[in-house]
Nucleic acid binder design. Structure first.
Lengths: 146, 146
DNA sequence: TATTGTTATACTCTATAACTATA
DNA sequence: TATAGTTATAGAGTATAACAATA
């Protein structure tokens, strides 16, 4: 009879922040799924890719670039090192510079491919100029962090 | 080639997904901080606002609109009900329709204001047409959920 | 059979405080 | 004093499986 199949009113639908959070959730889920095949979390993959591009980089620098706190870098680096994906050499008495092992290079190559496919799925259809505008906008948001 | 203490190379900087995740993290932190004054989490506030706009709505419908699983709606609804912000009346034998209590109305008004200020902070400078485009893009991303 | 709600559990990201060691 | 790393803990969102009661 009066089947209430109607969509309910969502006052948040006009808020860009609402859609930003939802979109982020969806892409995180997709990225997690892709990286699970490599037994990596999104943060793991980002860290590997960053180390690959910056051999000898320290945890602090990685965290700074990725927005990850020092305290949260420690267990991640330990996990990646234990798996033999990264190896560290002392920079000075308190810092360790990390580089990818040969196995880490292989896994990181897979992570890069997964990231690229992931990005292409969600934003591959976006023209380059619009992509640039979007990234600039997102950076301006992230830079408003207190 | 003076490469000292500079910003490290971030291969992810060209990926929109990377910036999307970071932007989402920043706005979530801001929203959490604003709503903490009302003793609400972001999901609480969204739920209250949705109930306010749809008196008698059920948990399932709320979760559907907000992207929250049924299993995660239960403790939230219980918490809001225990605080006296929402009250439920049976729709049928298995569903409960929720409405805001008078105290819930007051708190929800504060949540709406916080949400509006929050959105204005991060996207208030964005022209209306660009905002529409951004929202449409974010919705297209969220709709790609498997 | 399908839907609604519940319970239990687990994962991931994020955050802070307090601590050690080194610069 | 400041920096790098560690440890412990907590909060929030998200997810699945299994279950009961109802439609």
């Amino acid at each position: 009879m009066t089947k209430k199949a109607k969509t309910i009113d969502n006052p948040l639908a006009g808020h860009a922040g609402f859609h930003l959070r939802r979109a982020s959730s969806v892409i995180m889920a997709d990225l997690s799924e892709r990286l699970a095949e490599l037994d990596l979390r999104p943060a793991d993959a980002s860290t590997l890719i960053l180390i690959g591009a910056n051999p000898g980089v320290t945890q602090s620098k990685i965290g700074e670039a990725l927005g990850i706190q020092r305290a949260n870098m420690t267990p991640m680096a330990a996990r990646l090192a234990e798996r033999g994906l990264i190896a560290g050499a002392p920079v000075d008495g308190r810092s360790i510079g990390f580089r990818l092992t040969s196995e880490g290079e292989t896994v990181t190559a897979g992570a890069r491919a997964a990231m690229a496919q992931h990005d292409a799925r969600f934003l591959g259809a976006l023209p380059a100029d619009q992509r640039r505008d979007l990234i600039a906008l997102l950076i301006s948001i992230a830079d408003k962090r207190p």
